[in-house]
């Protein structure tokens, strides 16, 4: 199993279920933290947490679905796996439509649960890396002058220096200088890399 560094946040009102889940996660070398209610987790929640949520749907106080909506409002990116002791098809469909990545019934098979948790952690880690990359790209892009941005857009669009120079009514030499600065500021060596980074800017 790959190491994602993410924590599995277990939110379930049943103490024994929480305790046994954390033991199971430990057996798979996964780190976990347990919470007895949605509110307890909400209090603990901080933006930038990484990992995934194993969330009981039916709990006293705030329900799992309500916590999901609340996390959505906070802009949280944690993937949610719902677990429920008494679900039905409409409940499962509703949870999935509201953005859960999975919905598992109690009692569950250990392999299935661990596999889903692992997938969730990996997808979250991937998203997190993408977001970090996007943030870095955006920050670098911010340092470009308006002229450099214009040149970058033309380069990404696949135009050669000569065409860009004509289009912007500047010398080819000037285009080359702008272009070099763009590559330097954006931290890339090839046009192909620049194109890849530009795709983050669209997001």
């Amino acid at each position: 199993m790959s190491e994602t560094g993410g924590i599995v946040f277990v939110v379930d009102d049943d103490e024994a279920v929480r305790d046994s889940l954390s033991l199971l996660l430990e057996s798979a070398s996964l780190q976990s933290q347990c919470f007895a209610s949605a509110d307890e987790f909400a209090e603990h929640y901080q933006g930038g947490m990484s990992g995934c949520l194993l969330l009981d749907i039916r709990m006293p106080g705030k329900s799992g679905l309500e916590l999901r909506d609340w996390l959505d409002q906070q802009g949280a990116q944690l993937p949610i796996i719902f677990i429920t002791g008494h679900g039905d098809v409409p409940m499962a469909v509703d949870a999935m439509k509201r953005g859960a990545i999975d919905f598992i019934q109690k009692p569950f098979s250990d392999d299935e649960l661990l596999q889903r948790v692992q997938q969730a952690l990996e997808s979250e880690a991937g998203d997190r890396a993408d977001r970090a990359e996007a943030d870095r790209v955006r920050a670098n892009f911010e340092t470009l002058t308006p002229r450099e941005r214009e040149v970058m857009q033309q380069v990404v669009a696949g135009r050669v220096n000569k065409v860009i120079a004509l289009d912007m009514d500047i010398s080819q030499r000037t285009v080359e200088i702008h272009r070099a600065r763009v590559m330097h500021k954006m931290g890339v060596r090839s046009v192909a890399d620049l194109v890849r980074l530009a795709s983050f800017l669209d997001k």
Partner: peptide, 20 residues
């Protein structure tokens, strides 16, 4: 629902213990 909770805990403890 109520009976499912201890059953889930038992099964999960057992799985975890075997893995460990």
């Amino acid at each position: 629902h109520e009976i499912n909770q201890p059953l889930t805990a038992i099964a999960t403890y057992a799985h975890a213990a075997r893995r460990l």
